[in-house]
């Protein structure tokens, strides 16, 4: 008979997740004279230079505030891409810890995604600042962003749970993820608008949660409208489905992690 029962007395892992997230955040800019200001400064510099390029140099005809459109795409995509890639290797990167500390292994990819989400939040703040500077009126509808971006975090958590668990057995997974990100960069409407996509691909695009999140952000910020219901439903379904699937894959694979690390 194979059975293990290790009684975990504590079901509340909030404090541990908080600590792991904060640890990640602190480590990144520790030892820098400007400290965590870099998490503000880095995206700000990028956004300013892109604003310059897309308002003064490259201005597609008939598109208003192209820089806001590009930036909302970039911010959404870069969180997705960075979080997924760093979470995929999170089990390997913390192998020393996993071999010695009994804790739920799920917390590692999840906390890595959440640490990235902290940077994401800062960038969203900057993006909204630029949107206001470009003349868009802040509105209550902007709170829809919280839901939409929350769904993106859920989606990335699901993907990362699956990919990080698979990466323990097949280290090639990290390169698969890297390639997938390169492909997705062009298949998510960052440098083009949703209306440019031919009709027959549009439904497919809506099932790509990242494309859907980009579209929803643009709708909310630039058109000051609530994202279409069909989009919200698809986004929610795909994100929660992915999370459930991710947990299932992780659960199946985690029992032999220690043997392969």
């Amino acid at each position: 008979m194979i059975s293990v029962s290790v009684a975990m007395q504590r079901r509340n892992y909030g404090y541990l997740i908080w600590n792991l997230v904060i640890r990640d955040f602190k480590i990144r800019y520790r030892n820098m004279s400007l400290g965590i200001f870099w998490s503000l400064l880095n995206p700000l510099v990028l956004m300013l230079v892109l604003t310059f390029v897309f308002t003064r140099i490259f201005r597609p005809q008939g598109v208003e505030n192209f820089h806001i459109s590009v930036l909302s795409g970039l911010v959404v995509f870069s969180f997705f891409s960075l979080a997924w890639q760093s979470a995929t290797v999170s089990i390997w990167a913390n192998a020393a810890l996993l071999k010695r500390v009994p804790m739920p292994r799920e917390l590692l990819p999840v906390s890595t995604v959440l640490a990235n989400a902290l940077h994401f939040l800062i960038q969203i703040g900057l993006l909204l600042g630029l949107a206001i500077a470009a003349g868009y009126q802040p509105a209550l509808r902007w709170f829809w962003l919280v839901y939409v971006l929350g769904m993106e975090i859920v989606f990335v958590c699901g993907l990362s749970l699956a990919s990080s668990a698979l990466d323990v057995y097949f280290r090639d997974v990290r390169y698969v993820v890297e390639s997938a990100n390169t492909v997705l960069f062009w298949l998510v409407p960052i440098f083009y608008s949703f209306t440019m996509i031919p009709e027959r691909y549009r439904t497919l695009y809506q099932y790509n949660p990242i494309a859907a999140v980009v579209l929803a952000c643009r709708t909310v910020i630039m058109e000051n409208r609530v994202p279409p219901e069909t989009l919200l439903v698809k986004l929610t379904a795909v994100s929660i489905g992915t999370l459930a699937l991710g947990f299932m894959v992780f659960r199946r694979l985690k029992s032999r992690f220690a043997d392969y690390l």
Partner: peptide
């Protein structure tokens, strides 16, 4: 410690 699972 629950870090490994037994085969048997």
């Amino acid at each position: 410690a629950g870090l490994l699972q037994p085969d048997r």
